[in-house]
């Protein structure tokens, strides 16, 4: 039957893993946002070569499973580059380039959804392209992309769980370790699932408040 003692034992371990989960997810989403902003913007411009490189990056990330990317970054890249990677660093890199590729799509779509008239009005007043982008296009695009960004954040948190394959001691890894040694499989994975539910639910509420504050969905 359900062993509450098992739950009590695994709980602090998963809680500890949660710190790493949050740390990696937040770092990943911030770095990914920067990557996505730059690559997404470039993909809306006429820079042929840069555009091809960015599209290649998005294609590469979207066409391979994240678990393969994690294995590749942790086990193969250090061999190619001949420098050892820390697990957590490999984890952050993996999550960042993944989030970056998807955010790139979000940014591109949001930029393209800003009416062309905004560009024309800005340029016709003598603003530079960069000024139009930073003062007119991004503020509007950001409002449009907030729901999709929030969604990506949730996906990113869940994605961190696959880092267990390279031994990053996040929530899933902690639960798995305990389950394997104690054979309390039911308790370990039930507690783990509850942790994710709790984490994502809180995030959903926060994102909802943020969207409301930003006036998303209103004109």
């Amino acid at each position: 039957m359900f062993d509450w003692n098992g739950v009590m034992t695994v709980f602090p371990r998963i809680a500890e893993g949660m710190q790493l989960t949050i740390y990696i997810a937040v770092s990943g989403i911030i770095i990914g946002f920067i990557i996505g902003l730059i690559t997404g913007y470039i993909r809306t411009t006429e820079h042929c070569i840069l555009k091809k490189i960015m599209s290649f990056y998005v294609w590469l990330v979207r066409s391979t499973p994240i678990i393969v990317q994690a294995l590749y970054i942790y086990f193969v890249l250090p061999r190619i580059l001949d420098i050892p990677f820390d697990r957590n660093l490999a984890g952050i890199i993996c999550i960042s380039i993944n989030a970056g590729a998807y955010i790139s799509e979000i940014v591109r779509g949001a930029i393209l959804s800003v009416p062309r008239g905004q560009w024309e009005a800005g340029l016709s007043l003598g603003l530079s392209r960069l000024q139009v982008i930073t003062h007119l296009i991004f503020p509007l695009a950001f409002k449009n992309m907030l729901p999709a960004l929030g969604n990506q954040f949730i996906i990113t948190i869940k994605d961190t769980s696959i880092l267990t394959v390279i031994g990053v001691a996040e929530m899933t890894y902690q639960a798995g370790q305990y389950a394997a040694t104690s054979f309390n499989l039911v308790e370990s994975y039930t507690t783990l699932a509850v942790f994710y539910l709790f984490l994502i639910s809180i995030l959903t509420v926060i994102l909802g408040l943020l969207e409301k504050k930003m006036g998303v969905g209103t004109k």
């Binding site: 009416p115 905004q118 503020p139 509007l140």
Partner: peptide, 9 residues
């Protein structure tokens, strides 16, 4: 412009 193109924010 025909459609004003004011900056909405």
């Amino acid at each position: 412009f025909q459609h004003f193109n004011l900056f909405p924010l």
